[in-house]
Amino acid sequence: MRILLGVGGSDESRQALHRTVERAVLAGDELTVAILAEVTEDRSVDDIESEVNTVLEENGLDADVRRIEGNAGSELVSIAEAEGFDRISLSGGTTSPMGKIQLTSTAEFVLLNSHVSVTLIR
């Protein structure tokens, strides 16, 4: 399966990266990692990219890594649809102090607009 994984700077994104890479190794997925410059939190794109490369190396997975400028949600959907990806994966949101699950605006946009299947990782 061809998977487009969107990652930003959050802890949830980091968890999504690890889970998706591990699954790709097991399932033989063809993975593209899109680093979303719009949602890096307080980290730099370089910092996130080097972490992505480290995780890929540790798991022995070859993957295309790209930097995506502009609106994170719409760019993910456009790329997935234009390039024939089977699935968009991204972190499934954050949790409030109370523990309530909250969708990020990126996840919300992707869910509502994508014609490609979406996996939210929890």
Binding site: T95, S96, M98, G99, K100, I101, Q102
Partner: peptide, 20 residues
């Protein structure tokens, strides 16, 4: 339930209660 709380199994209920 609302946005995932309260959790549905006993272990997670207790983890959540310990937090709040």
């Amino acid at each position: 339930r609302a946005q995932g709380i309260p959790p549905s199994d006993e272990r997670r209920i207790r983890e959540w209660l310990d937090n709040i």
